[in-house]
């Protein structure tokens, strides 16, 4: 009897913690439908007294305000950049992980150290000089400057290498006897087995690009407002919240949460498997 009570208390505690985590997001939702005067008014009510969708419709007309930005086009461009980056980054990092895990070649250890060493270099250390490099390459103010420099990640190569190390050697030998090249071995045997790590790493690449703030602000100038990334737009709206109203900032924030929510729905099935994978390391 006592043990059952204890378990019930623990269950309730877990429910409470999960609820507390969602509380800030839950509190935000009714506030998006409050008007400019009500949102920060005293006393506070959970639900809006004057229900309005102005905060959302205002986002459509930002182009005609002093900010002169297009919120929904920026959403689209950011999602496009992140999606292209996912495809390119997955291809590059997976095949590198495969080469380090399954192939024998000259200089393997030296190259592996070269990849791993980049884990110790914080982004801020090479930030300013990276801007110089992309300037010299003539990439400033282009869509490529947002995509290319962040494609290779030592963490992701490491993750795929660990994953591919887990398969028995006989797979390669059998394929080689059948006359497969290394590319065919990767394409037809290892790639189809990589769905779980692809989804997990793909989601993290997408979110990394989608959430990036500092790099786009340094490489995209005011002349290319069409390439502004969504986090920069939210920062701009936040700074301007006294004019456009905090409700609109919240509305923009909420719309910007849609892609992460979709990603979350896609990956949630794989998260547990993924953590189990991480456990193998």
């Amino acid at each position: 009897m006592k043990k059952r009570n204890k378990k019930l208390i623990l269950d309730l505690l877990v429910v409470l913690v999960v609820f507390m985590i969602f509380l800030p997001i839950l509190l935000m939702i009714p506030s998006m439908f409050k008007d400019k005067y009500e949102i920060f008014s005293y006393p506070w009510h959970l639900f809006p007294s004057n229900f309005t969708v102005d905060n959302f419709s205002r986002l459509l007309y930002l182009e005609y305000t002093s900010l002169a930005i297009n919120f929904f086009r920026s959403m689209f461009v950011t999602i496009f950049v992140a999606s292209v980056a996912v495809v390119l980054a997955l291809s590059i990092n997976m095949i590198a992980g495969f080469a380090f895990a399954r192939l024998r070649f000259f200089g393997k250890n030296a190259l592996w150290v070269m990849v791993l060493f980049t884990m110790f270099i914080p982004g801020i250390t090479i930030l300013i000089t990276s801007v110089k490099v992309v300037t010299a390459l003539g990439m400033l103010d282009s869509i490529w400057v947002l995509i290319i420099p962040g494609l290779v990640s030592a963490y992701n190569i490491f993750f795929f290498r660990q994953f591919y190390l887990g398969f028995p050697k006989e797979i390669d030998e059998a394929a080689k006897i059948d006359g497969a090249t290394n590319f065919q071995l990767f394409r037809h045997i290892f790639l189809p087995m990589s769905k779980t790590p692809m989804v997990i790493i793909g989601a993290s690449i997408f979110m990394g690009y989608y959430n990036s703030y500092l790099w786009p602000t340094l490489t995209i100038s005011q002349e290319r407002k069409d390439l502004f990334q969504i986090m920069y737009i939210i920062r701009m709206l936040f700074n301007d919240s006294s004019t456009i109203g905090y409700g609109s900032v919240l509305a923009a924030t909420f719309v910007s949460l849609v892609p992460p929510l979709l990603i979350f729905i896609i990956v949630q099935k794989y998260i547990r498997e993924g953590i189990a994978l991480a456990g193998i390391k």
Partner: peptide, 15 residues
């Protein structure tokens, strides 16, 4: 719970 608590990890610091 394990599914739900992962969500904040996807959201950017600014948001």
């Amino acid at each position: 719970s394990r599914t739900l608590i992962y969500l904040p990890n996807l959201i950017s610091g600014i948001v």
